[in-house]
Amino acid sequence: MSWAWLHRLGSPKWFYGRFKAWPKPLFCLACLCLMVAMVWGLAIAPPDYQQGNSFRIIYIHVPAAILAQSCYFAMGMAGVVYLVWQIKMSPIFLQAVAPFGALMAFIALVTGSIWGKPTWGTWWVWDARLTSVLVLLFLYMGVIAVQSALEERSLADKTAAVVSVVGLLNLPIIKYSVEWWNTLHQGATFSITEPPSMPMAMWLPLLFAVIGLYLLSAAVILWRMQTEIMRREARTQWLKQEVLSDGV
């Protein structure tokens, strides 16, 4: 098997040229998907027979929670790639994805607690999922804090990779442990969090929302990566030419 593609992917110059035009169409597509999802989910889909209209927050909450986890997984993998192969692009990706993932985890937490108020009667419940998203947020904040605290770039890259890899290894243990802890304390009283197979009319807009948010994350992360590439490669010749010929 040839590893050439991986090495090409590792070169900021190649990456920049290849994906320069991508964020804008991705962003438009994402907006479209999200609009469809929002209109469909908020206005057209039928209200839940138990929760009424309050369930509609699912169209933000669930995609955000999914994204928060996917982003962490991607970040951890980038960390592994950096530690093993020293690919130049992976810390750039890591740096681009961390704040976005943290934001998603934060949104998932906030919407979760807003959702909790009408359904459970409290803003916060020590529910296994909520707790593990909270821990996820802490893990993100750790990575971001390391990146900003260490001034020397190579050191910051390495340590952020180490922290995210260790977090990635821990994530399943954390999830499992929190579930264990929760079931030991109290039975699964909130069966609402395990939605019974949803009707199509509710599920389809959710699918759109998830896809839309994935597209949005791809666009945002690519944008952030481009900015970061420009910052890191500011002294190189190819970037100067690129900027002179095409503008930023």
Binding site: G142, V166, N170, V178, W180
Partner: peptide, 14 residues
């Protein structure tokens, strides 16, 4: 502390 405490959670739980 910020980096390590989240990693301690599963240990403390179990």
């Amino acid at each position: 502390l910020l980096i390590v405490l989240p990693l301690y959670l599963p240990i403390i739980i179990f």
